[in-house]
Design a protein around this nucleic acid. Structure first.
Ligand SMILES: [Zn+2]
Ligand SMILES: [Zn+2]
Ligand SMILES: [Zn+2]
Ligand SMILES: [Zn+2]
Lengths: 159, 159
DNA sequence: CGCGCTTTAGTTATAATATAACATCTTTGA
DNA sequence: TCAAAGATGTTATATTATAACTAAAGCGCG
């Protein structure tokens, strides 16, 4: 089995993500400013989660003005509010959402070797979690499901 | 519906957790030193996750010597290795494991109002996650499932 | 346009969480 | 009793995140 992201045109991922972000923001009246779009682009520079300070470092390379942490965190907060990116709390890092625009609880498969991270929508997981919450009389507002391990690629490589 | 932890003898929880820790460590040859046991006791002071620096502050109150961060983090690392506590990455905090001694992927229900956190073993969740991983050819080594929301108690209180 | 209001970004400082590196003490077992 | 391993102490610093205030940009309205 090979990874979904082993061979693909990643420029396509980026441009699609940016285009969809523009569309969604226009629709909702949110202002996708230059800075915010730039940060989104940097988050999408790979399928690996990226830390706020890594984004800051990239911004320093690519932009005129040298940004400070609050600038980056505010852009990230905006992008999270718009559902364009997710924060992975087990890594203190951020990753682009491949299907923004609809509410969802992603389940993340994080490879500890290559760090490539895949967001999955899995019905059975969502259902079992919902029923677990119901059993306990618990009302979920946010679900963080972060699975760390080895992706299929990296398993093969280790054989 | 009322919370599991609404009315109970919490001294019993603490002493049971400490006793079980002693037994498990003796069995495995791990050294549950005074410091480590003290930190475990502090983690168990409630059913709410506690941060490393809160533990540090408690230690400062209760012990002769004033400990430094590495001291606390090392004790926490030990307790995690022994499976006696879990770290909740969405809170940067730690909580005692109610059923240590056997490998398990806990699922945590974290109340955002009262902060009481319950660890659940849920077969359907474990199964759906295992099948999700299988589908993707992903080999899980660690699963963090942290569900934030309102416990039954706090829902009642808000009505 | 020109003025005020709101939103966004810049700036400075600091909080909160976590670890590196090395020194010292304690336990253990030969 | 002594050497090795393990645990803790100590100092410094890395990493992640936010508070608080200032300045600039965008927007609506007369
Ligand atoms: Zn791609
Ligand atoms: Zn998503
Ligand atoms: Zn209790
Ligand atoms: Zn547990």
């Amino acid at each position: 089995m090979t990874s979904v992201y082993q061979t693909h045109d990643h420029h396509h991922c980026i441009s699609e993500a940016l285009q969809e972000a523009r569309t969604l923001c226009q629709r909702s009246g949110a202002r996708l400013t230059h800075l915010r779009e730039k940060v989104l682009e940097l988050v999408w520079q790979s399928h690996r989660p990226i830390g706020a300070y890594d984004i800051l470092a990239e911004l320093a390379k690519q932009e005129e003005r040298v940004a400070q942490p609050p600038t980056v965190y505010r852009a990230l907060d905006f992008l999270m509010e718009q559902g364009l990116i997710h924060r992975l709390s087990s890594l203190n890092a951020f990753i682009g959402c491949p299907h923004p625009g609809k509410k969802h609880n992603g389940c993340f498969l994080i490879c500890q070797n290559c760090r490539v991270t895949q967001e999955i929508e899995h019905q059975a997981i969502n259902q079992s979690i919902a029923s677990c919450a119901t059993d306990q009389g618990f009302k979920i507002t946010d679900a963080a499901i972060e699975l760390t391990g080895l992706c299929s690629n990296c398993q093969e490589a280790q054989e």
